[in-house]
C-alpha cells in the first residue's frame, strides 16, 4: 500500500495514474495534499505534476472511452470530492486493464460511483443554469454571484455565452474566488481584484451601482412568483426539495424567507 499525494488538479490526478504504471505500484491510496495527515509506517509518494505525462494518460483514456465517458470523467473530477478522486484513479486503471467498452459495466463499483457523481455534478450545473439571477448594473453589465456545491462554473460558460450573446455579464464563484466575464466577444476568467469593488458577502448590489430599472424588475419578479402560486395546493416539502434552502439567499424571489 502506497499513499500518493497530489495537488487536487486534473493534471495531478492524471500524472498520478502515469506514476502508478511507471512505478509498478501495488495498491494506491490517492490523497489530496491539503487533506493529507502523515502517519507512521506509511509509504508515501509525492506526485509531481507533469503536463506531458498527464497528456499521455488522457490520450490513452480517450482511445479507450467514448466521448460521453470522457465528459463524465472530467465532470466527476470537478466534484472536488476526495472519495471520487480515488474512484477516478481506480476507474482509469480498470479502463486501461480491460478491453474497449468496459465503461458500460455498471456492475463495477467504480463505474457506478463515477456515473453517480456525474449525475450529481450535472444536477448542480443544471441548478446554476436555473438559479442564476442577474442584476443589471448602471454600466449595463449583468452580474451574479454564485456558490455552487461543486466547481461547475466551467460547465455553464458556453450555455450563458450562447444565450446572452448580446449583453455583458459576470458570474462570480464566491466560494472558489474566481469568476468569468463576457464582453460581447469572448469569455474571460477574472479573479478577485476584478470585482473587488463589490462587497461579496452582500448578494444584492447597493442601489447606487444598479440600473435604474433593476429594483422594479426584481419587484415584479417577486410579485409574479407570489401570484402564480396556488395556495390550495401548498406543498412546502416539495418546494424545498426542488429549491433547497442553501440556495435561497441567492434567489431574489425568496428574499426575506431565510
Amino acid at each position: 500500500m502506497v499513499t500518493y499525494i497530489f495537488d487536487g488538479s486534473l493534471e495531478g490526478l492524471l500524472t498520478a495514474i502515469y506514476n502508478y504504471y511507471d512505478n509498478k505500484a501495488a495498491a494506491v491510496v490517492l490523497i489530496w495534499d491539503k487533506l493529507h495527515q502523515p502517519s507512521m509506517l506509511e509509504e508515501t509518494f509525492e506526485v509531481v505534476n507533469d503536463e506531458a505525462k498527464a497528456k499521455r494518460v488522457w490520450d490513452g483514456l480517450k482511445k479507450k472511452m467514448s466521448a460521453e465517458w470522457q465528459q463524465r470523467f472530467y465532470k466527476a473530477y470537478l466534484s472536488e470530492d476526495p472519495a471520487t478522486f480515488q474512484h477516478l484513479f481506480e476507474f482509469a486503471r480498470y479502463i486501461f486493464d480491460n478491453p474497449v467498452g468496459a465503461e458500460s459495466n455498471f456492475g463495477n463499483k467504480h463505474v457506478m460511483a463515477i456515473s453517480k457523481m456525474d449525475r450529481s455534478v450535472n444536477r448542480e450545473r443544471h441548478r446554476m443554469k436555473a438559479f442564476i439571477r442577474f442584476q443589471k448594473t448602471a454600466d449595463g453589465i449583468y452580474y451574479c454571484p454564485i456558490e455552487p456545491d461543486f466547481n461547475v462554473l466551467p460547465l455553464i460558460i458556453a450555455f450563458f455565452k450562447n444565450r446572452y450573446a448580446d449583453q455583458q455579464w459576470i458570474i462570480y464563484d464566491v466560494k472558489r474566488k474566481y469568476g468569468v466575464y463576457y464582453d460581447l466577444q469572448k469569455v474571460e476568467e477574472i479573479t478577485y481584484e476584478f470585482v473587488s469593488a463589490v462587497n461579496k458577502s452582500q448578494i444584492t448590489l447597493p442601489a447606487e451601482v444598479l440600473d435604474t430599472k433593476e429594483e422594479l424588475a426584481s419587484l415584479l419578479w417577486k410579485d409574479y412568483f407570489n401570484s402564480t402560486n396556488i395556495p390550495a395546493r401548498k406543498n412546502m416539502k416539495l418546494h424545498i426539495q426542488h429549491v433547497p434552502k442553501r440556495y435561497w439567499k441567492y434567489l431574489n424571489e425568496k428574499e426575506g424567507k431565510n
Binding site: 443544471h126 444565450r163 395546493r233 434567489l251
Partner: peptide, 28 residues
C-alpha cells in the same frame, strides 16, 4: 438557437424556481 447574435435560445427545459405549491416556474 441564438444564431443571429440576438438573445436567448430554447433547448432543454429549465425550471428557474418552484412556487410554494411545488410547481415549476419556467415561463412567464
Amino acid at each position: 438557437k441564438n444564431e443571429n447574435k440576438g438573445i436567448g435560445d430554447s433547448s432543454n427545459g429549465i425550471c428557474h424556481t418552484y412556487t410554494e405549491d411545488g410547481r415549476c416556474v419556467s415561463l412567464l
